[in-house]
Design a protein around this nucleic acid. Sequence first.
DNA 1: CCGGCGCAACCCCTT
DNA 2: GTTGCGCCGG
Length: 811
Amino acid sequence: MSLFGSHDASQGAPHSPAAASPLLANLNPEQLAAVTLPEGNALILAGAGSGKTRVLTTRIAWLLQTGQVSPGGVLAVTFTNKAAKEMVTRLTAMLPINARGMWIGTFHGLCNRFLRAHWKLANLPSTFQILDTQDQLSAIKRLMKQFNVDDERFPAKQTQWFIAGAKEDGRRPRDVEVRSEEDRKKVEIYQLYEEQCQREGVVDFSELMLRSYELLRDNDVIREHYQRRFRHILIDEFQDTNRLQYAWIKMLSGVTVEGRFVPGGSSVIAVGDDDQSIYAFRGARVGNMADFVREFEVQRQIKLEQNYRSFSNILDSANALIGHNTKRLGKNLRTDQGPGEPVRVYESTSDFAEAQWMVEEMRQLVREGIDRKEIAVLYRSNAQSRVIETALFNAAVPYRVYGGLRFFERAEIKHALGYLRLLENKDDDTSFLRIVNFPPRGIGARSIELLQDAARAAGHSLHDAVSAVGGKAGANLSAFVAKIDVLREQTVGISLREIIELVLDHSGLIEHYKADREGADRVENLEELVNAAESFVTQEGFGRDAVALPVDELRQSPASQGLDPSRPMIDEALEPLAPDAETGETLSPLAAFLTHAALESGDNQAQAGQDAVQLMTVHAAKGLEFDCVFITGMEEGLFPHENSMSDHDGLEEERRLMYVAITRARQRLYMSHSQTRMLHGQTRYNLKSRFYDELPEAALKWLTPKNQGFAPSAFGYGGGYATSRGAGGGSGGSGYGGGFGKESFASPPVPPQKAAPSHGLRSGMQVFHNKFGEGTVLALEGGGDDARAQINFPRHGVKWLALSVAKLTPV
DNA sequence: CCGGCGCAACCCCTT
DNA sequence: GTTGCGCCGG
């Protein structure tokens, strides 16, 4: 049967005129059905490695090619810049189309574009700048200090979290429910923070979303314009959307009848995977998927279950594991590839030995011809990377760690950006404070306090209040402000590159870091900033995120080359907005660059491109794939993490996280755990992860003998270890060292150096205590007489108990 | 005003 | 064990 003629069980026939399109070649039936979905809302459940991005981009290309939509009528939204970029790249490879004018980007990038176009209606200055998380925190700290808020009772971090959380639930201060004095205070701070941001002309990340949402909600002309404009809306990683993002999509996509949302205005395709929802901790709501089906009256759901990445031993493991979750939409990955190699499991005696073993194993893999960049080491938390890095470093194996500070987050870069922002907006007090005494110019805490008092009294920004401060402090401050003002004048009419060079030179930053023995890297980064600006300017479609083309301009702009040239960029029936609604102006290159810096913090990987082993957290690995993957620290308390394993939802998220980890591997997957581990400067005795028990025995091969799982206290953990060695050990495989052809094992397991604990407790166990009653073991640490257990007693809270003292009985 | 010291925190992270 | 922040002494 012809591929194009095939009907997916649940889906309608593919759009027939397009059947011959080469775009659709080599799609499997489910993919084809998804790409050629007829109008209407649909949910695509896209399993790991099922070709999700391909489906999304092919769908857009197909819609354009078949004339079902003009480029301006497409809205495609992702979470990360990386995903957005990839979409644009793939799309332009399929169709020689000019992506300018198309709304493809991140939620925040698109909201920014929208607010730039309608800044007046959004009640923002045309040059508003964006606060990143660091800036936001320092703004909150400053505010709390000014209003004498007790930072013991209201830690700044928590306040930040509260404000972001409220905004992401769509709540302004007046909408937040106040149930206690605490709440009242928090809302007051929130209110003050908003006023401060407004005064300074800055918005934080959640504000970009909320402000856009509110403008759409409150302005009928704007809303209806965009609702008419976007005929096709596609959302990637839908399981990661929060409440506000969901509401935003709803606002853009619907038809509003008497103020009520009615689906059907445009076709919304949500693509996601509930099994890969790992961001609940930052507000993601998997429930949005079910809500979407209900509220958008979704008629079509397609599951992409064919996996093109991994062999079936890996997929069977992933499927079996995730099958232990109860809250699922239901999906099973399958592959046409054979079983492949077994999943290898290794137990070590210490975290050090675990790392050592990995290094040896990796060397063997490299000898077998695997590229180092195709080997990834995944861990649950960043703290685990250190011991692995040490081992790799000592063995001179090139490696690369993901995470950590990104380019635009580095202190020296933030300082340079501080100067640039102040040139653009003198009222940006956050930037003012960052650089007023950096490099040091004799303006200390006392001077700044005087200035802040003066600014508050006069209702001015710090910049404008300088003249009100007298004495030596005033003179120093005036000199600083004068310097900034002179710089601003000098930047008129010169290129972005020249502006940055000027600032680097006159701010004294370069000089300052050159004088520092350890400042060489920072000088280099500052010089790199010039390059970043240069490539930003020369990039095709520069400032694409910063400006939105007005409808009239889109109509006039020549149609993109690959498509019918007579076809407009935008639906001809679309009315331009009234002049006062369409206030989009071209941002200055500097303002656009600053926006870019805030929205795209840059790569967080050192030395990209080198052939190096990849180290990262499981979270960071989402969306990536490797030939060989090591999942390390498969221990109770680590993975599942102790902070998540006491409640059901937390444990399910940990399991999804493990699912993500497993499905990163193409060919070879290793899992390892250790009997002892240094954590927070203490040796911990963790038990092997419960997740092992949820994997199919047939897919596993224990490189070290499999323990008997939980052993009664008389035997203790590791009880079967010494005797079973070499005797065929666990039930999972043919035992240690059994014939694997050319494969070799680096080093035999080292017998435990220390006695393993003999209390027989295991994280997650229910125990009984005479005084506290029943509780759950959260963590274990120490050994012998020092052994302690952390136990959560529902009645009495979480306690650390010394096992030599406390009487605990397993329930 | 700056650097040094002491103390607390410490899971995951993108915009 | 490490890092970052806040306070205090020079």
